[in-house]
């Protein structure tokens, strides 16, 4: 046991009172500390207070949404934009996590849960967890790694205004299951020839190994098998429109998974987080955020924030109109 993990909750009403460990988790924490021999409670990591302003080195939490389907919108230039509609379904913060790694660096994360579920079908263990957080039982609980300043009070309800139209997001979901598929579809094998004496095995994978030496198939050999229904990330999709009334996020392009599946949305790692800190360090301040985005809701876009903002916000096109010929 090299790392010490403590799940702390802080009261949404009383931000100053940040550490509120229940007796059981204190006992667990003590058990853990006694294992590693560090017994003093000073080593226990504290949830740092959240900053109130986004900085280029901040990493915000993501959200859990449900994919509802696709539709097309037309932007201000009259260009058709195919979008996927994502809807937040009672997305709430259930815990803040701080873990000290072996090298004394810290891992910070926000635990988010979504989609209410009946108490009857919730396990006692999870019910205890949700009760501690003071939220109704949820179907899906996920953790997003954040920077130390981006912790959110437990119980906070997150809103679609978390994302700013014009910014980029990564969307993570399980892809559509394809069932048991052959090598041609699953791995892009070419199969055997259509003629030249090939019979019955036109879509065969062909040889899968050598002979008596090695006498076995090497692990990881690409063969027929179950395809799809695996975690897939689509990176750098622009957010086109945000609707806080119905809690909708319109993201440009296609997203893995079936309709009504849970998807994770977070600020794009490459086009937002990496570029922000990099351009800040280089002094390219106008490129810290994507074009047209001035700031991001920090530490998160909550339902309280949504009440102070317009219900529907749309991104204009930040590119040259394709309908005007180039001289």
């Amino acid at each position: 046991m090299f790392s010490l993990r403590v799940v702390c909750r802080h009261n949404s009403q009383n931000l100053t009172h940040l550490r509120l460990l229940s007796t059981t988790s204190t006992a667990n924490a003590n058990a853990l500390t006694s294992n590693v021999g560090a017994s003093s409670s000073k080593d226990r990591p504290e949830i740092p207070p959240s900053g109130d302003k986004w900085t280029p080195n901040s990493i915000r939490t993501g959200l859990i949404a449900r994919k509802r389907g696709m539709i097309a919108l037309w932007n201000d230039q009259g260009v058709r934009v195919p979008v996927t509609v994502l809807q937040l379904d009672n997305c709430q913060v259930t815990a803040n996590v701080v873990t000290v790694r072996r090298d004394k660096s810290e891992y910070h994360a926000v635990q988010v849960a979504a989609s209410d579920k009946p108490v009857k079908t919730t396990t006692k263990q999870m019910l205890g967890h949700f009760n501690k957080a003071g939220v109704p039982p949820k179907r899906i609980v996920k953790e997003f790694a954040v920077s130390a300043d981006a912790h959110i009070p437990v119980g906070t309800e997150l809103s679609a205004v978390h994302f700013v139209p014009g910014q980029f997001v990564d969307v993570i979901a399980n892809s559509i299951g394809k069932g048991f598929q052959g090598g041609m579809k699953r791995w892009g094998f070419h199969g055997l020839a259509a003629s030249h004496g090939v019979s019955v095995s036109h879509r065969s994978s062909g040889s899968t190994g050598q002979h008596q030496d090695p006498g076995r198939i090497f692990p990881g050999k690409k063969m027929a098998g179950r395809m799809g229904n695996e975690r897939t990330t689509v990176q750098n999709l622009p957010v086109i429109r945000v609707d806080s009334e119905l809690n909708l996020i319109f993201v440009k392009g296609a997203i893995p998974g079936v309709d009504d599946a849970h998807v994770l949305i977070r600020d794009a790692k490459k086009k937002m987080n990496c570029l922000s800190s990099h351009n800040q360090a280089k002094g390219l301040y106008e490129k810290v955020l994507p074009k047209g985005v001035d700031d991001l809701p920090f530490p998160a876009g909550t339902t309280e924030l949504a009440k102070t903002l317009p219900p529907i916000i749309e991104a204009p096109s930040y590119r040259r109109s394709p309908f005007i010929p180039i001289e």
Partner: peptide, 11 residues
């Protein structure tokens, strides 16, 4: 209502 996070966004 103003939108503080993007001046160019359409409402």
């Amino acid at each position: 209502m103003p939108y503080p996070f993007s001046k160019t966004a359409l409402v």
